[in-house]
Amino acid sequence: METPEAPPDTPPARRARGRTAALIATAAVLGVVAGTCVGYLVQADRAPTALPSLSQPSLAQAKGAGPEPLSAARDRKVKTDGDLRKLLLRKPAGARKALIEAGDDGWMDLAVYAEEFQSPANAFRRLAKLDELRRVAVVDWREDSTYTVEIRLVQYRETEVGTQAADDAGAGYDNAQPPDDHDTDGWPIPGTGDGMAYVHHKPDTSYGVSLYSAEAHAWRGDIAMEIWIYDTKPIPKAKVMDLATRQMEQL
């Protein structure tokens, strides 16, 4: 039976720890950590996805004297309308490929992103029509055996109604620490207004391995930032706070 479609003003609900957590846990159980390549079959079966156009329409220059245009360093739109992947944090020296790579050449298509929600079909419809999702840039990597980081920059088209990036971040806050969750701690991300970072102290054991997680959500302009960290060991607050702070500085 198909899941009823959520009302237009209701943000789509995410899965408890996301699709990526399930894939990483499954990969660990299958022995990918020991050096096998089972997990990569998930990506190998996917058809190639066309990348979003990064070209922008040229605008006619108004005649007459006007204000001095902002330099690229000062004009944020120059950065965010260009190659969004360049605003992602770089992989640290020595980092390896993630057990399950999240995107294709730094992009995550809409269908894959919608899989992160409880009802992928409803999320797909909402993101495609109502939220006017523009594109999702992603980077991920692995350190040691199982410490995995995934960072997404989710960009929306600007509209006159609401701020979808802020709504995206708000939904992330609500999902990260519901009122009845006593196993999660959260802290404000410096310099972001309402950005938050979370560490989940209770591991997910659904897949036969203890998988700890941490996450961070914030937004700036038309971009929502999402950070997800997974490991088979508890994740320190300093790890997620450092990544979240540095990533928001890039925006």
Rank of each mutant, 00 (worst) to 15 (best):
P67Y: 12
V199M: 01
L243W: 12
K91F: 02
D45W: 15
N175T: 10
I24S: 01
S213R: 03
Y207D: 05
E143G: 09
D104N: 04
A28V: 15
I235V: 12
L84P: 02
E215V: 06
H182E: 11
A60F: 05
Q250T: 09
R134D: 14
E2R: 12
V136H: 04
T49P: 00
A25G: 15
R246M: 11
A171I: 01
R14L: 14
L84Y: 05
P236Y: 03
S53D: 15
K129N: 14
A165M: 03
L54F: 15
Y147T: 15
G106K: 04
A98S: 07
A244K: 13
D204Q: 03
V29T: 10
A95Y: 02
S145G: 06
P69F: 12
R126F: 13
L51T: 12
T20R: 05
P8K: 09
M241V: 03
I235E: 00
T80V: 14
A171R: 06
V112Q: 11
Y207A: 13
R85F: 06
Q177Y: 02
G195I: 04
A34N: 15
I229C: 11
A238L: 08
V209M: 13
A16F: 02
V139S: 13
G162C: 06
V240D: 00
P4R: 06
V154G: 04
G191H: 05
E132N: 11
F117E: 00
W141L: 09
Y113S: 00
S145H: 12
D109Y: 08
L251S: 03
E150T: 14
A44R: 14
R157Q: 11
K237H: 04
L133H: 03
G31K: 11
S55Q: 13
E2G: 06
A27R: 04
T26I: 03
R126A: 11
E143Q: 15
S53R: 11
T184I: 08
Q118K: 13
I24E: 03
T3E: 09
L110Q: 10
V209C: 14
L153W: 14
A34W: 03
K63F: 14
I151F: 07
G94P: 04
V154S: 09
A121E: 13
L59D: 05
D204P: 00
Y113C: 01
V139Y: 00
A137G: 07
I189D: 00
G94I: 01
S53V: 13
R134L: 04
T36P: 10
A34M: 08
S206I: 02
K233Q: 10
V112C: 09
L54R: 15
D181K: 11
P236Q: 06
K129H: 11
P92E: 06
N175L: 05
P67K: 08
K233V: 05
S210N: 13
R152T: 10
E158L: 12
G94S: 07
T232D: 09
A34I: 00
L54I: 15
I229A: 09
T49W: 12
E132Q: 15
D194F: 10
Q177D: 08
Q118L: 15
F124N: 06
P7A: 15
T20H: 06
A214Y: 01
A44K: 13
R74N: 12
A16V: 09
F117L: 01
A123Y: 00
A22F: 11
A224Q: 09
R125F: 11
K233C: 02
M196L: 14
I229T: 13
A22T: 11
A60N: 04
D104R: 02
S55K: 13
P179N: 10
A114E: 07
E2M: 10
R17K: 12
I227T: 07
